[in-house]
Amino acid sequence: MRLKLVAASLLAAIILASLVIVVIPGASYSRQDREAPLAGASLHHPAGTDALGRDRLVRVAAALLLSLAGACLASALTTAIAAGMGTLAAFAPRPVGALCMLGCDVFLALPWMFLLMMVRSALPLSASPASSAAITFLVLAALGWPACARAVHRGALNLRCADWMLHARASGLRGIQLARCVIPNLLPLLLPQLLVCIPAFVIAEANLGALGLGIGEPLPSWGGMLLELDNSAMLLETRWVYFPVALLVLVLLLLEAITVEA
């Protein structure tokens, strides 16, 4: 519990600091200082600049906020889908339940990276960077639910056979009335699933960005910034290129710590 508290506090502090950095008057994640590409740390650019002269600190802060916000929303969505599908499969007639779980298996077997690339290439080209970010996380959510749904299904099956459930049925509860009883009992299962999905989506977005297929420029994304590490020549220019990956690892560790304790 203490580790969870420390991790949550640290994460909150990082998010708060990022918010402050992004809203400071004059801060811009897209402005190019063309006279100072790949500059080192200075008063004007505390974490230096990227290859196009954009402030690295502001970009990392904006990427962190964007990534966490997107991952949290996507995680909530995917958990909701998983809860619905898992519960339906457990409480519906057996053939329907089997069909639902078959759907989960099919989704799990999909080559999701190629699917993401196909979806990305099918998007209208005029989609703004913000839209591309929203769609990226939406697609992640749409593809991320099956594993979670299987866990929910197993938990819901246990509930279905529980004594209190038999009592509830015997008392005449049906449909939505039953669901109202089931969902609160699934919460201890859903909350860890929600928390587990957040770092998974953060890293999925980073992977997609590293392929150059994630969030569009000039919006910063972790994946886009990790692309700098693809190039050993860049690594020698300035050590600040490691800053985004260091922060990403820290944030993932904190999220993991919160998840484990949950």
Binding site: A206, N207, A210, L211, G223, L226, L227, L229, D230, N231
Partner: peptide
């Protein structure tokens, strides 16, 4: 050719 994220 795709260049993946971390060269290391």
């Amino acid at each position: 050719a795709f260049s993946l994220a971390v060269s290391l």
